[in-house]
């Protein structure tokens, strides 16, 4: 089993287990995962077939991805009428604190991607 740091480098996911995803986590996810999570949030719940279609893979690809996210506590599997549906599990807000440390990662990524925006 990989140590947590090495594991994080593999999938880009935050390490804390079982706490759910904060929105600050969501925007700092690697692009493919962020798109998947955002897409799931807009749909409330999704089926394995829908996940597979979204990631342009087959159901085994979708299942592997969902299993990974469920194991990390970021997605919840819901049994409904003999089938499994998945929904994003969001972390509760534990009091409001400035998010600027978390959002700094977004700024850093933006700076890497393009020149700073000039003022109009």
């Amino acid at each position: 089993m990989n140590p947590p740091e090495a594991d994080a480098k593999q999938d880009g996911l935050p390490r804390e287990q079982g706490a759910g995803l904060s929105m600050a986590d969501v925007i700092t996810l690697p692009s493919p995962l962020r798109r998947l999570v955002t897409w799931m949030m807009r749909r409330e719940e999704v089926s394995l077939a829908e996940v597979a279609a979204f990631i342009q893979g087959d159901e085994s690809d979708g299942r592997a991805m969902m299993d990974s996210l469920v194991a990390k506590g970021f997605v919840r599997a819901v049994q409904t009428a003999g089938s499994v549906r998945y929904r994003v599990r969001l972390a509760p807000i534990r009091g409001h604190t400035p998010m600027f440390d978390r959002l700094r990662a977004v700024d850093d990524q933006a700076a890497d991607n393009k020149d700073p925006k000039s003022q109009p």
Binding site: S22, M23, R42, H96, M99
Partner: peptide
């Protein structure tokens, strides 16, 4: 930007961002 704002943006079909022509708003 806080958690509920980011959630609102994430689940929105449309996002309208307001700004004033003010140096503090640009960045």
């Amino acid at each position: 930007l806080n958690e509920e704002t980011l959630l609102s943006i994430a689940i929105s079909d449309a996002l309208l961002i307001l700004m004033r022509p003010d140096q503090q708003d640009y960045q």
